[in-house]
Design a binder for these strands. Structure first.
Length: 478
DNA sequence: TGAAATGTTGGGGCG
DNA sequence: ACGCCCCAACATTTC
């Protein structure tokens, strides 16, 4: 009896795993392997927190496999070389893996696939990028028609989800590295690793009838001071949760929702999952977006790129409380509320006039859920340089955004304890505090909390000018 | 998944 | 009673 290799990459789960299912077909024994590629591990885009989350996920998966008579083989090195060696050692005949869309992954997979019997199985998205095209076969570059087409395809059903195998046969004593213990996931990262935790969170988000978080998602999702989002992104990122299962859960929930508001909320969350697939499709069809603007005119923007401003942004010292709170949340917890991501991105690009790629990189280095497709899509959206992007003139006012989406300043106070005693009136614009109040609350601007590093009104105008200039130059240049 | 600038309206104070 | 001004409050346009 020959064996198959199940090559894991970003599908760290046993339930609803098509690659695992394919590897087990015909009752074959399976060799589950994860390859720690030094190129990936040493990449400056892989931050410590996400690396720790990945390693923790591997430990969880190994534990789950051992409960089913198997175990995880961990190798270190180049994927092709390691797989070649492993095939020989285990007399494996086939390699099964979940297809991934990032340029790095597709290059690696085509290199491996040219010389080894690799079968790529769909699974990262519910619908493959190739399935969502216009009548003439060209890819969509606008979200709404993309989502219409996505929704017109037959949806995954509960019955189509693959059960986790109760037993997996794996040949004994295959050489494997110990999963590195370093780096360890800090306590301050509120995302315990693993498939079980992902399932638990999905249930919490869906359950409890009409008061379930998903039924109130539309109303609460933008509030940075509430836990109104699913908190599933890191699990979807590493496939500790299958996107298909998330979609099936949402559709089920929608079909039994008792009122239109709940149904609408569920639809809004479903759309967020479709945004994820939209950006994966964009990256698949237009891999150059990782290097430059999707819209060529905006490659000509003259960024200010002030290093001091960039450092202030990274460290949460801009003097705008919402921005600083969000950047502290990222540094400490490895995650940031989605509304906050838009606010700090708008601030970096359109208040500081710093190249969006600097922000994109910082996010990749610090987000536990950092995914090249979604992250790039989000940044190009904010910068107005991408597909279906925010128009260039859409510039967030950090004070108004704070008042709207953190009305009592709870979010600001949680991440900036130094501002804890400010009256609500000044929590989003502390520089307006009269001096006597500054002393009263022990927060003197310029001493305990920075002055705003830029004036929003002036910065806004400068950015509009810079974008206008880029457009003009593009037209004149042909 | 904006916000600022500009325009319009209407109530109320006032001479 | 009337016209004038001020300015919220809301609407529309512009970036």
């Amino acid at each position: 009896m020959k064996n198959n290799i199940w090559w894991l990459r970003r599908d760290l789960r046993l339930s609803d795993n098509p690659a695992l299912r394919a590897a087990m077909a015909g009752g074959k024994a399976v060799v589950p392997v994860f390859i720690l590629d030094p190129r990936l591990l040493s990449s400056t885009d892989l931050g410590e927190k996400r690396k720790a989350f990945l390693l923790g996920g591997l430990r969880d998966l190994d534990r789950a496999l051992r409960q089913r008579g198997s175990y995880l083989v961990v190798r270190h090195g180049n994927a092709y070389e390691q797989l070649t060696a492993l095939m020989k050692e285990t007399s494996a005949v086939h390699i099964y893996a979940e297809a991934d869309v990032s340029p790095y992954a597709s290059r690696r997979d085509s290199e491996v696939g040219q010389r080894l019997p690799l079968d790529l199985v769909e699974g990262v998205t519910v619908h493959l990028p190739d399935m969502i095209t216009k009548a003439d076969g060209s890819p969509y570059t606008v979200y709404t028609p993309f989502s219409r087409r996505w929704k017109a395809l037959s949806p995954p059903t509960l019955g189509s989800l693959l059960q986790a195998p109760s037993r997996i046969n794996t040949p004994p004593d295959i050489d494997s590295l110990k999963i590195p213990k370093d780096p360890i996931l800090p306590e301050s990262v509120p995302f315990p690793t693993g498939e079980q935790e992902a399932q638990r969170r999905l249930s919490l988000f869906m359950d409890y009838e009409d008061v379930s978080p998903i039924a109130r998602y539309e109303q609460r999702r933008n509030r940075m001071d509430l836990k109104g989002t699913s908190g599933l992104s890191p699990y979807l990122r590493f496939g500790m949760l299958s996107a298909r299962q998330a979609v099936v859960s949402a559709l089920q929930k929608r079909s039994v929702a008792s009122n239109e508001m709940s149904q609408h909320s569920i639809e809004v969350w479903l759309n967020e999952l479709i945004w994820r697939e939209f950006y994966m499709a964009i990256l698949y069809h237009f891999p150059h977006v990782l290097k430059r603007s999707f819209r060529p005119a905006y490659s000509l923007i003259k960024w200010r790129n002030d290093e001091g401003h960039f450092a202030a942004w990274r460290n949460g010292e801009t003097g705008y409380p919402v921005v600083d709170a969000a950047m502290r949340q990222l540094l400490q917890s490895g995650w940031m509320h989605n509304r906050a991501r838009m606010i700090v991105a708008s601030f970096l690009v359109k208040d500081l006039l710093i190249d969006w790629r600097w922000g994109e990189r910082w996010f990749m280095q610090n987000l536990v859920d950092g995914d090249p497709a979604a992250n790039n899509g989000g940044w190009q959206w904010t910068a107005g340089t991408g597909t279906d992007a925010a128009p260039y003139f859409r510039i967030f006012n950090p004070v108004l955004q704070g008042k709207k989406f953190d009305p009592d300043g709870d979010y600001v106070r949680q991440w900036l304890p130094g501002l804890a005693n400010l009256p609500n009136k000044y929590i989003h614009e502390p520089w307006k505090m009269p001096l006597n109040i500054q002393h009263q609350v022990n927060c003197v601007i310029g001493r305990d909390y920075p002055h705003p590093i830029v004036d929003h009104a002036l910065a806004r105008q400068a950015t509009l000018d810079a974008y206008a200039q880029a457009r003009q130059q593009y037209i004149q240049g042909g």
